[in-house]
Design a protein around this nucleic acid. Sequence first.
DNA 1: AATGAATGAGATTTCATTCAT
DNA 2: GATGAATGAAATCTCATTCAT
Lengths: 225, 225, 225, 225
Amino acid sequence: MSKTSSAAPTRQRRKEARPQELLDAALALFVEKGFAATRSDEVAVRAGVSKGTLYLYYPSKEELLKAVIQQNYSGLIAEGAGIVDNFEGPTAELLAMLMRMWWTRVGSSPAGGIHKIMMAEVRNFPEIAQFYRDEVIQPSSELLIRTLRRGVERGEFRPLPYEEAMHALIAPLIFMSLHKNSFGACPLEGMDFDPDRVIEVHIELMLNGLLTKPAITAKTTTKAS
Amino acid sequence: MSKTSSAAPTRQRRKEARPQELLDAALALFVEKGFAATRSDEVAVRAGVSKGTLYLYYPSKEELLKAVIQQNYSGLIAEGAGIVDNFEGPTAELLAMLMRMWWTRVGSSPAGGIHKIMMAEVRNFPEIAQFYRDEVIQPSSELLIRTLRRGVERGEFRPLPYEEAMHALIAPLIFMSLHKNSFGACPLEGMDFDPDRVIEVHIELMLNGLLTKPAITAKTTTKAS
Amino acid sequence: MSKTSSAAPTRQRRKEARPQELLDAALALFVEKGFAATRSDEVAVRAGVSKGTLYLYYPSKEELLKAVIQQNYSGLIAEGAGIVDNFEGPTAELLAMLMRMWWTRVGSSPAGGIHKIMMAEVRNFPEIAQFYRDEVIQPSSELLIRTLRRGVERGEFRPLPYEEAMHALIAPLIFMSLHKNSFGACPLEGMDFDPDRVIEVHIELMLNGLLTKPAITAKTTTKAS
Amino acid sequence: MSKTSSAAPTRQRRKEARPQELLDAALALFVEKGFAATRSDEVAVRAGVSKGTLYLYYPSKEELLKAVIQQNYSGLIAEGAGIVDNFEGPTAELLAMLMRMWWTRVGSSPAGGIHKIMMAEVRNFPEIAQFYRDEVIQPSSELLIRTLRRGVERGEFRPLPYEEAMHALIAPLIFMSLHKNSFGACPLEGMDFDPDRVIEVHIELMLNGLLTKPAITAKTTTKAS
DNA sequence: AATGAATGAGATTTCATTCAT
DNA sequence: GATGAATGAAATCTCATTCAT
């Protein structure tokens, strides 16, 4: 019926490969069912090992969660920093490139599911919350803020409160990533839009706005903060 | 502001108030700790009753979750529909009004936390997923799409793929709501921006874009779908 | 076949009686099989409840052990102190009375088994070790030492190092108690002496010695310390 | 005194030394932590081998326990028998010599810890109980009883029930040995007596009694049984 | 022979749910 | 109805034992 049907489940020694296999299995299940609702031997079975083996590599389910998060984010940010520092050309292009890159590399990959786990669990794991803020949120925020500032200083972008604009910028990316791993994974009728196109439209709108002619908005006198 | 402090003599716990008290307690705890990690007698204690009493009203924790979700969304949408149908004036104003309204009435109220629960649990409760799509997502999407179409048809907005634009529009609202109930509730340093202002910046940017001068974007030749 | 044969194992509410029943069951099993080798649901079953109920009263097996020890020794020593303070007559009689009393009330009762548990487990539970020393060993040692000093000071006993003599005095009592709960409980042939008579012989020998005529012993010039 | 420090070049672990090293490691750990609470790879690590190697020599932890006990008692008794048979002189001296010898050779050596293990585990291992009775208790009891009888028959000792007197005689020896391996190994204040001196006082008291003048005891008309 | 990665039965503990009071 | 003591299925984690290398 499937791949491992006939051969006896002979015991395998794969010390090197095991951590990665376990982390992948754990990520998939934590994203699908949530951390608390995933039983530790489900993880083991999906990774093709026994319950005991899982505990040989990670001393508790909580440590496993931490390892999943760390492994997926180590050295993800550094890459983006290099791009920002070396880019020459219109800031709009740089911004669009960063956002498309994040979407390709994180948002629509398994690692994107980590956001879902984090949203659901941060309040139960303050230690992980701090780690995630320091290693992921903070550096990537800085990257985008630096880019916005570049645009404003070069006169390409209108003046803005950077922190808030940054959040408005990334919100649809993360939202789409969350969607893919929640509603998007359910067999529901009538939810058949294409996340990739949402990202493109978002980029377009962010840069150019909805209006055919710029309006003078009274309410939000936005200044670069 | 205080709930029921003055009027009720608080003599005996009123039977008819129980369901609401239980649902409120459950909502708060499910949002804070997640569904699986909330113990059913925590809910009971927070509602001021005993564990047994909880089961008198809801036959299982799962049914309680369903009731929490359903109760918080009954008749939330109808209100918006009336506004859209009767509004006269620039569509940009209508759109901004709808978004601010959602933020005030839902996003920054306890009900906003339901999104967090839904994200975390839909894949475990397909039944709820369908309900939520039918009762919440579908009608509010239609409302926004109708508004966008109004803008495009009146020549106020540039042509757009409605579905995708709609998602780009609501993403920061929902994202901020999720944030308030996850990272925003953790005592982390350096995450001290104001969600309300993010909403305002988002509205501003959505309408006018980042660029000082409109660019001709080649990549996304967005047409009204 | 037995007492609870026919009646359905109907759930009983016995909040008051439960702690004692659980402690008795735990004592018996810890003495018989040792602490580590006793499974917590064995304790529950012997007390006539379910595993869950045990944890309703004691939050862990270790806490259960502590409770067993404390409950069996609270106010056991005070009694002896009263006797020593009020006794008039030959110290030999007082000493014999104390020893026989201990044997009757502790050594040959279930509580005597606690010594066996303590011997086996002290090194794993330093906290309990301290408790036992403070509550049991220290006060009862003082009692015996006071008695020995009375004998020496009244010229009834030869001079002695009190601390060491005290240990020589109680050793057979405790040893017999340990024996009853270890070898004595095994179905072995040829170990059929009577512990009660050992105690009597010990008392006799302690007071009068083995020798028909007192010897002058060079080696141990024992002085009252 | 040092085991094998100078002679062996310690190049490769010698195969023939393994069993002894394993038994020593097991003895030390079983005495310290108890049988059930000692993990089998703790034993292996302490013996400087891997877990797998331990199972090459002993097929189960239970067999290891048996081996520990048996190995430590082989040919311990024979020695004593020779002494008793050949001794000439006062029986009191013989008795004192036997007791001091036991204390030196067994009680205060690692082998003394076996008593602790036996006390704790006999009821779980009936097979070992029988072995211990046959190989250790029975022969050494006989030795002491023979010595007591010699004393009584030569008119040196008062008439006694031999079996019971024998137990009264050895109790402090074993009790001190147990103490060294339980409470004595805990860092408790106020338990700082010297076991060696307890033994000496015990011998002194046993021979001469506490009383300055022999009393006529009515209660225990002890006759040689 | 020696190793230590892998296993899985079994232990402790939790908690949704039931039900006697 | 309301309570909370009682239950037991199920979850996490341990560790004696096995076996591929």
